[in-house]
């Protein structure tokens, strides 16, 4: 038996249409492929764009800060930007599946296709388009990111401490001068196990940990930062919508990682002032207060 007994059995050259039929028909057939693919592509692109625009806000929760809404906007814009490219890949794949001519003769290989080894126009335009897209994504991302780096002259300081397996918050005594000239005063340092923030007041979170790494993730504020032991991680935002949400731990931290969450609220600044004035006593929600359930 020879090792090459099988070699070269399949010499079916592509039945070049140019050789058999008029060049005009070849072009027409080629156009037919292009047109078929374009239909599928257009359909998928429109679907992708619509999904990006209208599905994203449904899928994601209502956000309480500009940073949170930036995340939603980014998903929207990136989906719309990616839709034509993703749709093109899908369209060619789907079209080639629909167009496969050998479904009924699966036991033997079909006749070879045209020996296309590349197409400078296709490759070139693909490269140009994908590079432009990347430049756009980067531009978008950096612009958004830069707009979030604005440091307000004065911000409410909230010290966040993560530890196994609880978040605690402390509001040091401070007077914050708000952009409008008003002031917000925390007369006496307050510790709390829930996070309450006044609306439209810039906040600076100073996040640290007592033991291992935790992930401080006030979900609907669209910001996130690890609580590292021995490090002060600074996060800034300005909550601008009232509402309740959860702070969740986003970094596995051991046994009760799943239980490491706190209830957070954005409240009117008058309510915040009244709440903070009670000192420590008002901070902790006692079980008596939740009789009958909060929900």
């Amino acid at each position: 038996m020879s090792s090459n007994h099988n070699h070269g059995i399949h010499h079916a050259t592509y039945q070049s249409i140019d050789e058999e039929v008029a060049p005009g028909l070849h072009k027409q057939l080629h156009r037919q492929h292009v047109r078929g693919t374009l239909y599928v592509w257009a359909l998928l692109t429109v679907g992708g764009i619509l999904a990006g625009l209208y599905l994203t806000p449904i899928l994601m929760p209502h956000m309480n800060s500009p940073e949170g809404r930036a995340a939603i906007e980014t998903v929207k814009v990136f989906t719309v930007a990616a839709a034509p490219v993703a749709a093109l890949v899908c369209a060619v794949a789907i079209y080639s599946l629909i167009n496969s001519r050998h479904r009924s003769h699966l036991d033997s290989p079909p006749v070879d296709g045209p020996p296309l080894r590349g197409n400078a126009l296709a490759s070139g335009s693909w490269l140009v388009v994908s590079t432009l897209l990347v430049v756009f994504l980067l531009f978008w991302g950096l612009t958004e990111w830069a707009s979030q780096q604005v440091v307000h002259a004065d911000a409410l300081q909230v010290n966040v401490t993560g530890q196994q397996w609880l978040w605690t918050y402390s509001y040091p005594a401070q007077t914050v001068i708000l952009p409008g000239g008003k002031t917000l005063t925390v007369p006496k340092a307050v510790d709390a196990t829930t996070l309450d923030l006044p609306i439209n007041v810039p906040v600076q979170f100073n996040v640290t940990s007592k033991d291992v790494t935790h992930g401080f993730w006030p979900t609907q504020l669209g910001i996130q930062g690890d609580a590292n032991p021995g490090v002060n991680d600074v996060l800034r935002t300005t909550p601008d919508h009232l509402g309740k949400f959860q702070v969740r731990c986003s970094q596995i931290c051991g046994l009760y990682h799943a239980y490491m969450y706190t209830q957070a609220s954005v409240i009117p600044d008058s309510a915040f002032t009244a709440w903070i004035a009670q000192g420590d006593a008002g901070r902790v929600l006692t079980s008596a207060k939740i009789t009958g359930g909060v929900r």
């Binding site: 959860q246 209830q263 929600l285 079980s287 207060k289 359930g293 929900r295």
Partner: peptide, 8 residues
Amino acid sequence: PGIAPGFF
């Protein structure tokens, strides 16, 4: 979470 969020 979701059942007794403020309980502690």
